[in-house]
Amino acid sequence: MDEGAAVSLALDAAQTLKGVSSDVAQIKEVSLEQLRILQDWALSHPAEVEQPAEEEAQALVLDEEPEGAEWVTTLQTTVDVPPEFFSNVTQFAWMQTVLLVFVLAVLLLNLGVNLWKCFSDKWRS
């Protein structure tokens, strides 16, 4: 990789990181706004809000995870792939496998021919 390509790659990475940081800042703002709305609603409707147990409340205050809590992260994307994409990928992988087997067979045949040429004269004499 030449110096210009490396600089271009570094600039692209920096721009991507700036974009990610702005996305994280937006998510943080939305989350804080939602938390404020939920807290306001909880204050205005105290009878409808379940009060957490003392241990859970303490863990929430200390930003600790309660015992036995299992977190699941779900990643969703808005990019849709065409329906034939996965069949095309499978076909491509199959073609690569067949090509690899063919190349391997040719290389083994070539090795066999070269070995025969090297040792056939010595075997005859």
Rank of each mutant, 00 (worst) to 15 (best):
D2N: 15
E3H: 15
E3Q: 14
L9H: 06
A10R: 12
D12T: 03
A13E: 05
A14K: 02
Q15M: 11
L17F: 04
V20L: 04
S21E: 06
V24P: 02
A25M: 08
A25K: 06
V30F: 04
V30H: 04
V30I: 10
S31Q: 07
E33I: 03
Q34Y: 08
R36G: 10
R36A: 15
I37S: 12
I37N: 12
W41F: 15
A42F: 06
A42Q: 10
S44D: 08
H45V: 04
P46F: 03
E48T: 10
V49C: 07
E50G: 03
Q51P: 00
Q51N: 08
P52E: 02
A53P: 02
E55Y: 06
E56F: 02
L60W: 14
V61Y: 08
G68M: 00
A69D: 05
E70F: 09
W71M: 12
W71N: 11
V72R: 11
V72C: 06
T74L: 13
L75P: 01
Q76K: 07
T77N: 00
T77R: 03
T77Q: 02
T77V: 04
T78I: 05
V79D: 01
P82V: 03
E84A: 04
S87E: 07
T90V: 14
T90A: 12
T90I: 12
V98G: 03
L100N: 07
V103F: 05
V103T: 09
V103Q: 07
V106G: 02
N110L: 15
V113K: 07
K117C: 12
K122A: 11
W123T: 02
R124E: 10
R124T: 11
